[in-house]
Design a protein around this nucleic acid. Structure first.
Lengths: 176, 176
DNA sequence: CTATTATATGGAGGCGGCCTCCGTTTTACA
DNA sequence: TGTAAAACGGAGGCCGCCTCCATATAATAG
């Protein structure tokens, strides 16, 4: 069922028909709805594994010496992740966009991972301190969301680098 | 009809029912479809005026002395614009997201406006040269799209500033 | 002023997706 | 094996998308 969902989303985007998911899973539409009351709940389950990997990667990167570089690498990893899982981009965007915090478990995990990396870099004074992990994550999602032409990946990675550079600058110039 | 659309979109978001638009305009659904064959064509017409204003603003800012500051101001203006026209954010995101370049007239105007500002700043060596106007615009749209909590505006403006700082840095350090 | 032709209009209807509800099947347990 | 509880499947109501065509309105000719 999760596999069917992943398959269907990865070809038709995250707004694919839930009935198609059910059909593809060889299951009734009612059953699908019992297990995943909303489309977003389904996203949550489908991409939970991926999110977990990203969180773990963040943990590993925290051991690195260079905080900003770790942050930058993690952001890059996010982009590459989204690039390989076609549906994930929209799913994340929907999750970030929606007001219902019920579905935001994964988003929250990502935010915390991000927060840890961010804090570490702020603590050593290498980046400015007035950007929240929420903002940065949403910015990241936004950058990925609107890009889906072939080859977008390299462009977004460049944008991410620009962003990280921007985070650095303030620390250079506005240190007490 | 355009007014009806603007009204309906501004309360229900850009994915509001087109039949609702027709009803609100006191017109048959068929008539609506004849004038605007697709939802995106309707967006196009509804927000054309707003886009035009932004393009004009870009022209005016080009007269300014400081290219980077002009760029920054224009980006800010975009954000504030989107903030006041509720439907515009999604409409732009849809336009940027869609593959059909047929509907992209307004997007193209914005891209050109952005390109002019960008080039000017690159020409005097104040920002790095490897970011295209398309990328920057899409990033901007994406950042606005995923944010819709009250007070998002200030956060996105801050993100934009970070971004502009990032554009600057490379010019500082990687000059021949 | 009327007949005829071109053009604009409105909405019914077919299609498909969303989601709920309930009769049926399967499983768990005594 | 019998019964209670849980899981299943899909029909059906609703709504939005979009097409198509019968009707109404405007333009033009006689």
């Amino acid at each position: 069922m999760l596999e069917a969902a992943k398959a269907v989303f990865s070809v038709g985007g995250s707004d694919a028909s839930l009935e198609a998911v059910a059909r593809h899973a060889g299951v009734g539409i009612g059953t699908l709805y019992r297990h995943f009351p909303t489309r977003e709940a389904l996203f949550e389950s489908v991409y939970r594994h991926e999110v977990e990997q990203l969180v773990e990667l963040a943990d590993r990167l925290k051991a690195d010496g260079a905080p900003v570089e770790a942050l930058r690498r993690w952001l890059h990893a996010n982009v590459e992740f989204v690039a390989t899982k076609k549906g994930m981009s929209t799913a994340l965007a929907v999750a970030a966009h929606s007001k219902t915090d019920l579905t935001a478990y994964s988003l929250d995990r990502l935010t915390r991972a991000m927060g840890a990396l961010l804090e570490r870099a702020v603590a050593v004074g290498e980046i400015r301190a007035d950007i929240t992990p929420e903002d940065l994550l949403r910015a990241l999602v936004g950058m990925c969301y609107t890009h889906d032409k072939p080859g977008w990946q390299a462009n977004v990675l460049r944008l991410v680098d620009v962003f990280v550079d921007g985070l650095r600058r303030q620390a250079d110039t506005a240190q007490p």
